[in-house]
């Protein structure tokens, strides 16, 4: 393969940025879900919304 260094670096940088983006979005979502579940466990819930994975609150 000609210019292998440039090609491999380009794909590696792309993979690193995309994987970081996916991981950041996924872990951010998990942290928010956990916070909502904690608030839900304390009995704090918005009217008419479901707890994550649960039934809608009255």
């Amino acid at each position: 393969m000609t210019h292998a260094f440039y090609i491999v670096t380009a794909y590696a940088v792309t993979a690193a940025v995309v994987l970081s983006l996916i991981a950041w979005t996924f872990f951010d979502g998990r942290a928010r879900r956990r916070e909502l579940a904690e608030l839900d466990a304390k009995g704090l819930r918005r009217r008419g919304t479901a707890a994550p994975g649960g039934a809608p609150s009255p």
């Binding site: 995309v18 983006l21 996916i22 979005t25 996924f26 951010d28 979502g29 928010r32 879900r33 916070e35 909502l36 608030l39 304390k42 704090l44 819930r45 918005r46 919304t49």
Partner: peptide, 27 residues
């Protein structure tokens, strides 16, 4: 498609973040 997946996920996270902030203010 990757962009739309991540955008929908990030929007969902932001909605949850705002709900957490609202509930904490309420508490």
């Amino acid at each position: 498609l990757l962009f739309f997946c991540l955008h929908i996920m990030a929007m969902r996270n932001e909605i949850w973040r705002r709900r957490v902030a609202t509930q904490r203010r309420l508490a």
